[in-house]
């Protein structure tokens, strides 16, 4: 094993001895000096996760989060020097982490928070303008075949737990009071999108979820509305479109020229 390999291995291993070949000018044992590096690596990466997963952290408390994060990062250290997006796989790790088993919603909270970070850093795209929409409506005959391009920062997260309400409760002035109104076992779907540089999170119902999901997959407008109505009798296409428009989430609408009869 090369010198740096031993050094790297000792950084991530728990209670590993100091790597060989280190010296100090005053003959002091190098362990304590090496521990500075180990501490920097572990704390730096735990901090990166703590910044990206603030509600996950709040739910379990600082001490538990730190311990859980260091277990994760020792198994899954970042593969890229770009730490902004570090945390892929954290939710899956949490789902299989026995000490967190009492909180079945915790993994989905981490999924939501990773999506939030991804949405925050996603590519920029301009929303369609009223003039664009007017042009589309002028060609209303082909509207059912229209295909929407949604913003790169738009994400859906379907959960069997009340992730949006739990997340929202942590933004309240009194978190405890807000949490008292939440039933964690309630299934919820989150819509994330970015407007004016800030990520917004909405709780959406089954019809809206189906509608946006289909649009995101590239299905035609008319088909997406039909699927949404199948998912939810009460689906209101105007309200769902208004949500997307208000969020600046539609960046392009393509109406196929009449190639089909």
């Amino acid at each position: 094993m090369s010198g740096l390999a031993a050094f790297a291995e000792a950084l991530l291993a728990d209670d590993a001895p100091c790597p060989p070949g280190l010296v100090t000018w005053n003959g002091s044992a190098p362990d304590k000096r090496f521990a500075v590096y180990r501490n920097n690596v572990i704390v730096g990466l735990v901090d990166a996760l703590a910044d990206s997963f603030p509600v996950t952290r709040a739910l379990v408390g600082e001490e538990f989060f730190h311990a859980m994060a260091r277990e994760f990062l020792r198994r899954s250290p970042p593969r890229s020097p770009v730490l902004a997006l570090y945390g892929e796989g954290f939710a899956e790790f949490i789902a299989g982490f026995p000490p967190a088993a009492a909180l079945p919603y915790l993994a989905d909270m981490a999924r939501l928070e990773l999506r939030r970070v991804q949405a925050w850093h996603a590519a920029d795209a301009d929303a369609i303008t009223p003039a664009d929409i007017a042009a589309v409506l002028a060609d209303a005959e082909n509207l059912p075949a229209a295909r929407f391009t949604l913003h790169p920062a738009l994400f859906l997260l379907v959960s069997a737990h009340a992730v949006v309400s739990l997340w929202a409760a942590h933004q309240a002035e009194s978190v405890a009071a807000a949490l008292a109104a939440v039933n964690p076992a309630q299934a919820e779907t989150a819509l994330l999108c970015r407007r004016d540089l800030e990520v917004e999170i909405y709780r959406i119902e089954a019809g809206t979820t189906a509608f946006i999901g289909r649009l995101q997959q590239g299905q035609a407008f008319g088909m997406a509305v039909e699927q949404a109505l199948q998912a939810d009798d009460d689906f209101d296409p105007a309200a769902a479109l208004a949500l997307l428009l208000r969020a600046g989430a539609i960046t392009h609408i393509t109406i196929p020229r009449r190639s089909d009869p």
Partner: peptide
Amino acid sequence: HGGAFLNDLLPAP
């Protein structure tokens, strides 16, 4: 090292 990013400025001989 070995594909892992260790997030510190580490020394070499």
